[in-house]
Design a protein around this nucleic acid. Structure first.
Lengths: 159, 159
DNA sequence: GTGCCACCTCAAGTAAACTTGAGGTCAACG
DNA sequence: CGTTGACCTCAAGTTTACTTGAGGTGGCAC
């Protein structure tokens, strides 16, 4: 009865490529059992795990971040609904943050459509760059992605 | 007077790396003049252009997409406020679309936090995968990223 | 019993967006 | 006059998230 799912089956059910699933296992996002012959054996819970991975990627999380999130799940036993609920809640908070960033970007852009500047002196979308210039180094950082020592100040323009 | 800006100066003002600016030029996102000695000479308008590029990247546009957007700007002359306004408007529409996608994701996730499933039979976040499985091929597609022939059907769950 | 398909591993390739390095030029500073 | 420092080109390296290919095993169908 408890035969488990072959990788091809999992691929079919999730829409993922077989190679992607193997890759995720290599990356430690999930662990598959093995048949005596060495073939991977997945459980239903792994489908859930893969669902989570796919959704998280949609949201823009990297593999490394997803791995971290998944570490919040129990190792030995199959995660319960409550386990997933905990992880989803953290997730939701992040999603809210992302939406907020985009909305602020949109609002700023609205201001810029009004003035047509996009980069003129008084533009709020522009200011962060001036600040970036003053901070000196760093590759690219503009909104919310400020380097370590610039946190807490990367918000709205100073006026 | 009209000396133009050296690449290092532009880098300092935008917060971009010199190498990144050169890369953007290679990619055709902007064009720099040259001094007799072959050094790049930028104009103020290029700062605006780079602002646009940075903002667009924040929004998740690829270089190729940004290039396309920028092709909407006049070639010969310096873009006017109106030129930027046109481009920004298109931009805003895309931004709205992205926000909407994330919001739907959030709403679906809310439903899942309620039931704690994230991947159980009735979950709306899960269903798209089932559909994906039925559609057969393709690498990863889950929400809105449906392959060509699956468009128009990849929306909300059926029940 | 043999042929095919799904599976295995491991290495290398791919695309995007850059960075880094090698080797060389040019202008200013002392 | 020489030596920094900013700039140049071109090639190769880096990271992320996979895919592709080579070479090999295991099992079910005929």
């Amino acid at each position: 009865m408890k035969r488990g799912l072959a990788i091809g089956e999992v691929a079919g059910r999730t829409g993922l490529a077989v190679s992607a699933i193997r890759y995720y296992e290599d990356e430690g996002l999930l662990t598959a059992g093995r048949t005596p012959a060495g073939q991977r054996q997945f459980e239903k819970a792994d489908l859930r795990r893969l669902s989570f991975i796919m959704i998280a990627q949609k949201m823009g999380f990297s593999i490394a971040q997803i791995r971290t999130q998944l570490e919040g799940l129990p190792k030995g036993r199959t995660p319960t609904a409550a386990d997933w609920r905990g992880i989803s809640t953290r997730f939701r908070a992040d999603l809210d943050r992302r939406i907020a960033v985009l909305e602020r970007l949109r609002d700023d852009l609205d201001g810029c459509i009004g003035c047509g500047c996009l980069s003129l002196e008084s533009c709020r979308l522009n200011n962060p760059q001036d600040r970036a210039a003053r901070l000196g180094a760093g590759p690219r950082y503009l909104m919310g992605d400020a380097p370590e020592d610039a946190r807490g100040d990367a918000g709205a323009g100073e006026g």
